[in-house]
């Protein structure tokens, strides 16, 4: 078939379809956004945003924090989406993972062993919680939630008993220490030499890890048999059960992944930040807000929510120090006002 035979509109779409047009537009927007990030800034822009270094650092910190938040919140949202179980002990799982990771790292001397221990120990605890506690209260959302509150109180107190009130920080291994120089010019010296932004390597690795895990989760949910069962369970639990799938098995798997991710995030976060009593509440709040904003039960939603909240928190920290929380709060309220089910949530 020659070109001339085709209808006119088809030829047009061959040249530049609607989709390609949008792609081009997005690329243009991305280039416009990227340009000021990499190039040095004029004085007036520096004056408005304190300094380029402060601004770009806030953005970078926000994105890496988002990676951590995503790790915590993805487990929370997965469990919620499938089991309608608001696990308010999720922050405790994070903190317990951090403590276990710390102790194991101290004991063995290998950070990676600590990370693995954090994941595995919490995955096991997750399965135990599902089998011992939640299976007995199936279908009673409120009581399940109340039970998680009770667990979080007891867990916080017992962790205080074992690890005490002091603040720990996990030492990252040497190969993750240090900083990398990014191709981002923050300022120009008087002699014309450009100053590049340096950023801790560890945080970049955490971000990369979060992206890898996010993609892996997405692939697991969308391309594997277990993922198919989980998605079916989110849509209609009774139907999945009726079609011969052992729903309790699926629940236990999801709970293991969710709790394990929280524990993993605990070790990873405890290395970048600190481990102390009260951190459980902080990460519970982060998970709650991320999931409320992103949409409950959605992994992409958790990623978007984490990005928004991480950026809001870090930008707030730099530009409105004492009102930073308000920014997070405003994002949540605006989301609820416009889309009560969350950005990626299904109504």
């Amino acid at each position: 078939m020659s070109l001339a035979d085709q209808p006119k509109s088809a030829i047009e779409s061959n040249g530049l379809s609607r989709r390609q047009g949008f792609l081009l537009l997005w690329l243009l927007v991305a280039a416009l956004v990227a340009l000021p990030i990499f190039a040095p800034w004029p004085a007036w822009l520096n004056a408005v945003l304190i300094s380029k270094k402060a601004f770009v650092s806030a953005i970078m910190n926000g994105i890496t924090l988002a990676g951590l938040y995503f790790l915590v919140a993805s487990g929370f949202t997965l469990v919620f989406g499938l089991m309608r179980n608001v696990n308010l002990a999720h922050g405790s799982l994070y903190l317990l993972g951090a403590y276990i990771g710390y102790s194991v790292t101290q004991w063995t001397g290998y950070w990676l062993v600590g990370v693995a221990a954090g994941f595995l120990a919490l995955a096991l605890i997750g399965i135990l919680m599902q089998v011992i506690v939640f299976r007995r209260l199936e279908g009673d959302d409120l009581r399940q939630t109340l039970v998680t509150i009770g667990i979080s109180i007891v867990a916080a107190d017992l962790m205080l008993a074992v690890w005490g009130g002091q603040t720990y920080q996990l030492a990252t291994p040497e190969w993750l220490d240090g900083a990398v120089t990014l191709p981002i010019i923050t300022a120009t010296r008087s002699n014309g030499a450009a100053v590049f932004l340096t950023f801790p390597l560890y945080r970049l690795v955490v971000l990369a890890g979060a992206i890898v895990i996010g993609v892996a989760l997405w692939l697991m949910l969308n391309r594997t048999r277990v993922g198919m069962m989980i998605r079916a369970g989110v849509d209609d639990r009774a139907m999945l059960s009726a079609s011969g799938v052992n729903v309790h098995m699926v629940f236990a798997i999801v709970f293991a992944i969710g709790a394990g991710l929280a524990g993993f995030a605990g070790v990873v976060g405890g290395s970048a930040l600190s481990i102390a009593p009260g951190e459980d509440v902080r990460y519970l709040l982060a998970s709650l807000v991320v999931v409320i904003v992103g949409g409950m039960g959605s992994i992409p939603g958790a990623a978007i929510g984490a990005l928004l909240i991480g950026l809001a928190e870090q930008i707030g920290l730099v530009y409105f120090p004492t009102y930073g929380v308000v920014l997070t709060f405003v994002i949540m309220v605006v989301t609820l006002a416009i889309r009560p089910q969350g950005i990626m949530g299904r109504g």
Partner: peptide
């Protein structure tokens, strides 16, 4: 939501 508000 109320827990998120209270914590915030």
């Amino acid at each position: 939501i109320t827990l998120a508000i209270a914590t915030a």
